[in-house]
Amino acid sequence: MSIANTEWRHTTRLKGLLAPLGVAGAAVAAFAFVGAVDPNQPGHYPTCPFLWLTGLYCPGCGTLRTMHALAHLDPVAALGLNPLALAMIPFLLFWWGRWVVRAWQGRPRRTTLAHPAWLWAFIAVVMVYWVVRNLPFGAFLAP
């Protein structure tokens, strides 16, 4: 293999990593911002439109406060605010890691995130969570 070909491959790998590293940078910046600007204080963030319109919690309600609690190393409080958001973090890290590995290997991006059955199962979990956290027996899921 020639030196020029090796340099071209190295440059291509680095360019392929720009997108996943950019997403990681944006996620870290957003996490740092939410960690610094307390969502528990009124006026810092807009109200959830679904909560404002209906008085019911959406699946995302409590996520900003969950991330704020994690930024302050309080996983117990984070779990009490939005357990679904907390449970999603390992999956998001896995998919991001898979993206980085594929980019580094020079393999094309996948056009599907996961098998459709997994995506439908995830949607079902979110819908059940949405309903249950608004019922009396699911009050422990409310933020």
Results as ranks from 00 to 15, higher is better:
A4N: 08
T11I: 13
K15M: 07
L17S: 00
A19M: 12
A19F: 15
P20V: 04
G22Q: 09
V23K: 11
A24H: 05
A24Q: 04
A26H: 07
A26G: 09
V28M: 07
V28L: 09
A29L: 11
F31S: 03
A32T: 09
F33H: 14
V37T: 15
D38K: 10
P39I: 04
N40I: 04
Q41W: 13
P42I: 13
G43F: 11
H44L: 05
T47G: 11
T54A: 01
Y57F: 15
Y57H: 15
Y57E: 13
P59M: 15
C61W: 06
G62Y: 07
L64G: 02
A69I: 00
A69L: 02
L70G: 00
D74Q: 15
P75I: 07
P75W: 14
A78F: 02
L79F: 10
N82V: 10
P83N: 09
L86V: 12
M88T: 02
L93Q: 06
W96E: 00
R98S: 10
V100H: 02
A103C: 14
R109W: 02
P116K: 06
P116I: 03
P116D: 01
P116S: 03
W118T: 01
V125N: 08
V126H: 11
V126M: 15
V126D: 10
V128G: 03
Y129S: 05
W130D: 04
N134P: 07
N134V: 09
F137Y: 08
G138C: 12
A139L: 12
A139G: 11
L141Y: 05
P143W: 06
P143L: 10
